[in-house]
């Protein structure tokens, strides 16, 4: 029970400070889950993100569910997800009933002009840190850059890239094993 409450509380805090959706959650996961608590490794986070992008639903929720499930099974998955969405539900409820023009308040607009820059830099920083655990050889580099370019400049779905690179990984390893 104590573990579930802890999961709920940690994800609740993450939900309250995660501006900008699933990818913006990455630096916060790195700080709270990987560095501070050791609940998951960088490799596992990469796997969760890859799977989260080709399964239905919100990426941040998928990732929360994964980590919660790893810690404490199905109750853990539910506790982490409930924690993550609690701040959203409360904040949106207050704003949608009291401050309909919230997004157009000058202070908010100006604050977000700064926050957007910060989120961009946080994601760059997280990507640099993850790079080492995800790209380990030349083949990895080719897959990574190929997926980046195709995903950034074509409208293709992430699902295609994840599935194709999974097949590529399988056949490359098989081929390497056969040649050794």
């Amino acid at each position: 029970m104590k573990e579930l409450l802890e999961l709920y509380w940690v994800f609740c805090k993450m939900g309250a400070v995660c501006f900008g959706g699933g990818y913006a959650m990455l630096p916060i996961i790195q700080a709270e889950i990987v560095d501070k608590r050791g609940w998951a490794t960088s490799e596992e986070i990469m796997d969760y993100y890859a799977i989260g992008q080709c399964t239905p639903g919100v990426i941040a929720v998928n990732t929360s569910t994964f980590i919660g499930n790893k810690r404490a099974g199905i109750p853990g998955a539910i506790a982490a997800t409930a924690g993550f969405v609690t701040p959203s539900v409360i904040i949106i409820m207050i704003i949608s009933s009291l401050l309909k023009n919230f997004a157009h308040i000058t202070y908010v607009e100006r604050a977000f002009s700064g926050i957007r820059i910060c989120v961009a830099v946080l994601i760059i920083n997280a990507t640099v840190k993850l790079w080492k655990s995800a790209v380990k050889d030349k083949i990895g580099l080719v897959i990574c850059l190929g997926v980046f370019l195709l995903s950034a400049f074509t409208p293709l779905s992430p699902v295609i890239f994840v599935v194709l690179s999974g097949f590529a990984g399988y056949f490359i390893c098989k081929w390497k094993g056969a040649s050794e």
Binding site: A50, A120, I143
Partner: peptide
């Protein structure tokens, strides 16, 4: 499974880079 993820992990970071690129484009 390990071989499949050998291919998926670099793809995952590629997708994150693409998302970062969109955010950077808008912010900077």
């Amino acid at each position: 499974v390990q071989n499949v993820f050998y291919g998926i992990r670099p793809a995952s970071i590629g997708l994150i880079m693409a998302a970062a690129f969109v955010v950077i484009k808008e912010a900077l």
